[in-house]
Design a protein around this nucleic acid. Sequence first.
RNA 1: GCCCUCGUAGCUCAGCAGGAUAGAGCAAUCGCCUCCUAAGCGAUAGGUCACAGGUUCGACUCCUGUCGAGGGCGCCA
Length: 586
Amino acid sequence: MKTQIEQLVSAALQQLASDGFLPQDALPSPKIERTRDNRHGDFATNVAMVLAKPARKNPREIAQAILEALPTSDLVERCEIAGPGFINFHLASTAYHRLIPYILEQAHDYGRSQIGAGKRVQVEYVSANPTGPLHVGHGRGAAYGSVVSDLLSAVGFDVHREYYVNDAGRQMDILATSVWLRYLELCDEALTFPANGYKGDYVWDIAATLHRDHAEAYKHTTEEIFKDIPADEPAGGDKEAHIDGLIERAKSLLGDNRYRFVFELGLNTILDDIRDDLSLFGVNYDQWYSERSLTESGAVNKAIERLRASGYLYEKAGALWFRSTDFGDEKDRVVVRDNGQTTYFASDIAYHMDKLERGFERVIDVWGADHHGYVPRVKAALEALGDDPTKLDVLLVQFAILYRGGEKVQMSTRSGQFVTLRELRKEVGADAARFFYVMRKCEQHMDFDLDLAKSQSSDNPVYYVQYGHARICSVLLQAAEQKITFETNPAAIDYSQLNESHEQDLMANLSRYPEIVEAAALNEEPHTLTHYLRELSNDFHTYYNAHKFLIDDTALRDARLQLILATRQVLRNGLNLLGVSAPEKM
RNA sequence: GCCCUCGUAGCUCAGCAGGAUAGAGCAAUCGCCUCCUAAGCGAUAGGUCACAGGUUCGACUCCUGUCGAGGGCGCCA
């Protein structure tokens, strides 16, 4: 609809340009907008005002000329010039009549498009360390990342969804050591669990598996383990030194194979749990990319060598630094530590280099807002490697603060007591959780009201939209029960019956859907879609209250039923894009 | 101290590459079920768009500064 008007205006501009009325070179692509006030018609353009300066003419004069050059169309009833030079388009009352059969014919595909032209886009999201179950903070990134992926896919991009598994590094060693110590406790060894260890119940579970399957094959005495280990924090020492000492002790006492086994057991158990959790949340991936594989394949070294070759590396205090300040970062960053180990940042450089080497034209990282300081250095690295840093888009997702009964829900990872994503799903359901997470733009701090998400009332936007869908299903069910048959052949339906203002409003909003999907996808703003679905549901509920559908006047009834069928289709498509179910009954 | 994000109605938020009188939902007040699910609908009331400058035909929207909120500034991952 919008694009059709756009074409009309473009044609008029071309005409005026070839007539010499407008300069040839500076023709803008006209921007057509929906009007806010229907007294201004249905669509409006400010193109005459935009052209006023380059054409050195009065905007109203240009608008007049555009009107005269405008090709005729049965879509438009009349146009007028208003205010400083707006051109307002009033649609013909028949303009939307073709819309309903079009929606019903397109069905699932209504709203989908090919703007993305098959461009390959990679979206990486969640990527939480596999050191414990996902918590509600990860949930927002999960919902957001998966909806953005689905939106991009709906508008024709070739989307690749990826989870970067941080399966290397110190945190994983702490996990492995934590598991081992819990296992020893199950072997009846008395010990003081380190302050910096992972204390969640899931660690006990993994330890129990180890104990059940391997009895005491991994047992060592408390004395040999804690001998000469630096004191822990509660004992007046340094908790980092304490845990590092324990990690080294675990490695030396267990030996490579047994240590690796405990490590893998912890990693895989948790990773399986995360995978399962996300899948039940409707979040799926094309690939789980291992950080360790980057080191093992030599990709990290390759990245470092490429940086060195471009002259951006230098040595200082035994470590190897990347001169990221040359690219606007606050300070230079270490890539190889003085102990010879590469940093997490080095892996990340290799990972992003690999993403671009895999041929993605666009790479989107969905990160927690706490990582924002990390963005400049990754972009700096890409630039230093001679890649195009603008191909990388980092979307920072702010934290969600949970509220229950008007009170902030306290979360603490340290004590192992936090609200997990799994608990959230159980409490409010996956539908409500996803919808709520995506209802706000990602950079917005979010208050997540658990009571509201659970409430089954119109206050709850999820149920409000779903109820619209269920209500339409219910009408159709009623029709069947009352043995009311209705016309389904669009050619046999008289859409001019639909002349109530509620019907016009509903049709106008149905026609907006493809524009909404496009905007939500291209701007990575799924909240646009949740807001739209709320508005559309409101239009429907209002209509429902004002008019009956199952009436005796068959011509009107047929037309109305087609209209609500089209509405149901759009609600279904929209909910589907959000990964929220569209129930037939509630 | 430096950097990032945010600051719109009592509360939670929209406001689409600057555009015509700033919009919803809660909460408040008042109405609507002999009728397709009241998990619904309607009406009223509520705002100097944090503040101060600037850019222009026009600014909630762009720029600068001030104030306020949250977050980030490791040879951690």
